[in-house]
């Protein structure tokens, strides 16, 4: 009986430790899920070549797609802007004015070399009807 109890307590202990480790690890990494452009710039030059996640709004008209599929664009937090280079899968809703989250390193040539490009989805879900109304009114 005592053996069983001890086993049980050890099992709970192990589980509790694992869970707290998960919580700690999760919170540590996601306490700040991303940096703003301003925060990134404030960390130059120490931030060079370290992996970071940065978020900003895609500056309209800056998205350039190379023939080989590589992408270049600028993101901004309103005051500061950085260049981003990316080659990979592009989210469906990625476009001008969309809030993008990029993961990668800020290189010494001041270009953010992203290996992951995420787009934040809108928090407002509209009906398509309103779009049709707008279109009609412009005719």
């Amino acid at each position: 009986m005592l053996k069983g109890k001890l086993k049980f307590i050890i099992a709970i202990g192990v589980i509790a430790l694992t869970v707290s480790y998960l919580v700690y690890g999760g919170v540590k990494d996601t306490m700040v899920y991303y940096l703003t452009v301003e925060e990134l710039m404030a960390q130059v030059p120490t931030v060079y070549d370290t992996k970071v996640r940065v978020s900003g709004v895609v500056v309209p008209g800056t998205i350039v797609k190379d023939t080989d599929g590589a992408l270049e664009f600028k993101i901004t937090d309103g005051s500061q802007t950085i260049d981003v280079a990316y080659d990979g899968i592009v989210p469906d809703i990625f476009a001008d004015d969309v809030e993008a989250v990029v993961e990668g390193v800020y290189a010494k040539n001041d270009v953010f070399e992203a290996d992951t490009l995420l787009a934040k989805c809108p928090t407002k879900y509209e009906s398509t009807d309103s779009l049709y109304e707008e279109k009609e009114s412009t005719y």
Binding site: V19, L22, V23, G26, V27, D29, T30, Y33, I89, V90, P91, D92, I93, F94, T116, L117, L118, A119, K120, C121
Partner: peptide, 23 residues
């Protein structure tokens, strides 16, 4: 996957949800 561009990311809500699931 199509909207953000990933199946999963360790964003605070996803992380806490994952922990909830495990718990």
């Amino acid at each position: 996957k199509p909207i953000w561009g990933t199946w999963w990311t360790w964003d605070p809500q996803l992380t806490t949800t994952f922990i909830l699931w495990i718990l």
